[in-house]
Computed example of a mutant assay.
Amino acid sequence: MNLLGALGLNFGLLVVIMLILWLISVRIKDVSFIDAFWAYGMAIMASASFLQIQNPGSLAYTIWALTALWGVRLGTHLFLRWRKEGMDPRYKKILGKATDKQGMSFAKAALLRAWALQIPLLFIVCLPAQLGILLAGSDGLSTVSIIGAVIALIGIGFETIGDMQLKAFKSDPESKGKVLDSGLWKYTRHPNYFGDFCAWWGIWLVASPAGWPVWIAAVGPLFLSFTLMKWSGAPLLEKSLKKNRPDYADYIERTSGFFPMPPRKIAKG
C-alpha cells in the first residue's frame, strides 16, 4: 500500500467536504455547525482509511469502530445542540472581528477563520486512527490494543454521561445562573473534555502496535490535550463562566480542573 497516497486521498476528501460545508455556512450566515463536523470528520477519515485496505483484521475493525462511535455520538450531540441553540457566540465574536475590524466579507472570514483552519487540525488529530487502520492490515488485537480500547470506551462513556447531565441541567429553568456540580461534574469541571482526552489516547494506544508511524502520530492526541486543557477548550469556556456564574469561583476552588478527583474541602472563616 502507498501510505502517503492513501493519506493524500483522505486529505483531499476532507478538503472537498470542508469547501462544501463552507458554501453552506455562507448561505446560512453561520459556521457554528463546524463543531459537529469536527467529530463527524474524524469518523469520515477513519472510514475512508478502512475502505482503502483489503482483508481488514480485528485491529483495523476496532480502530474504525471506536473512532466512528466517538465521532457519530459527539457529532450528533453537537449538531442537535446547534439546531436548538443557534449561532455559537464564540464564532459570532471571531467572525464579527474579521468583518467589522478587518473588513473581510463573511465568506472570506468564514473560510479563513473557521473552515480552512480546521482542515489540518482535524487531519492531524485523527492521524492515529488513519495510520492505525491503514497499517493494521489483517492484524489481530494485542494486549496493548485491548487496554487502549477499554480506555477509549471509558472516555466515550464518560463524555456521553457528562453531556447528558449537562443537557438535563440546562433544560431545568431553575438552573439558570447556577453551576452544575453534581454527577460527574462533582469530580471534574470538564467531564466531556476528559472523555475526549481518554478516547483519543485510547485510540492511539489501540493503533500503536501497527507500527512506528502511529507512535509519531501521538502528536494528534498531544495537540488535542493541549487544546482541551490550555487553549480553546477549558480556558476559553471558564473565562465566560466566571463572568456569568457568580458561584463558579467557589466551584473552581473545590473541583478538579480536568482529571476526576474527589472534591476539595474549602476552609471556612
Rank of each mutant, 00 (worst) to 15 (best):
I119G: 02
P56Y: 07
I133D: 02
L122V: 10
T62E: 05
K101L: 12
I94M: 11
I124D: 07
K101V: 04
T67P: 04
R81H: 14
N55R: 12
S145F: 05
L74H: 05
L95Q: 09
G148D: 12
R90N: 09
R73A: 00
R113G: 08
S58P: 11
L135M: 08
M104C: 09
L66A: 08
A60K: 03
S142L: 02
R113V: 00
K92N: 12
Y61H: 15
I119C: 02
K84W: 12
W64S: 03
Q102L: 10
A152P: 02
L141Y: 12
A149S: 15
Y91L: 01
L111I: 06
A60L: 05
L59F: 08
S58V: 03
L95M: 11
L117R: 13
D100P: 00
I119W: 07
I156D: 04
L74C: 03
L122Q: 10
S138Y: 12
L134H: 05
L122T: 11
Y91F: 14
G57F: 06
C126E: 07
G75A: 05
W115H: 12
Q102H: 12
L78Y: 08
L141P: 11
K93I: 09
V125Y: 03
H77L: 00
A110M: 06
G137R: 03
D100T: 08
R81Y: 12
L134Y: 07
L74G: 00
W64M: 08
L59E: 05
S145Y: 08
Q54Y: 10
M104P: 01
W64P: 00
I124A: 08
M104Q: 15
M45E: 08
I124S: 05
A107Y: 11
G86F: 08
L131D: 02
A65P: 04
A110E: 10
L69D: 03
R90Q: 15
K92D: 13
G157K: 09
F158K: 00
V72R: 00
L80K: 04
T76L: 13
D139Q: 14
I147H: 10
A110N: 10
K84C: 02
I133Y: 06
A149R: 11
T62C: 10
Y91P: 00
W82E: 10
L153V: 13
A136D: 06
A110W: 05
K101T: 12
H77R: 03
L59M: 11
H77G: 00
N55S: 14
L122M: 11
G155F: 04
L111N: 01
F158G: 00
L66V: 06
P89R: 07
S105D: 13
R83Y: 15
V150Q: 09
I124T: 14
T67F: 05
F158V: 01
A114G: 13
K93Q: 14
K92W: 04
W70N: 01
L135K: 02
I94Q: 09
M104D: 15
G132Y: 04
A129M: 06
I133G: 01
D88C: 01
D139H: 12
K108W: 09
G57R: 03
Q118L: 02
L112Q: 13
C126D: 08
V72T: 11
A149T: 13
R83E: 15
I53K: 05
S145P: 14
R83C: 14
Q130D: 06
A68C: 12
V125N: 02
K93T: 14
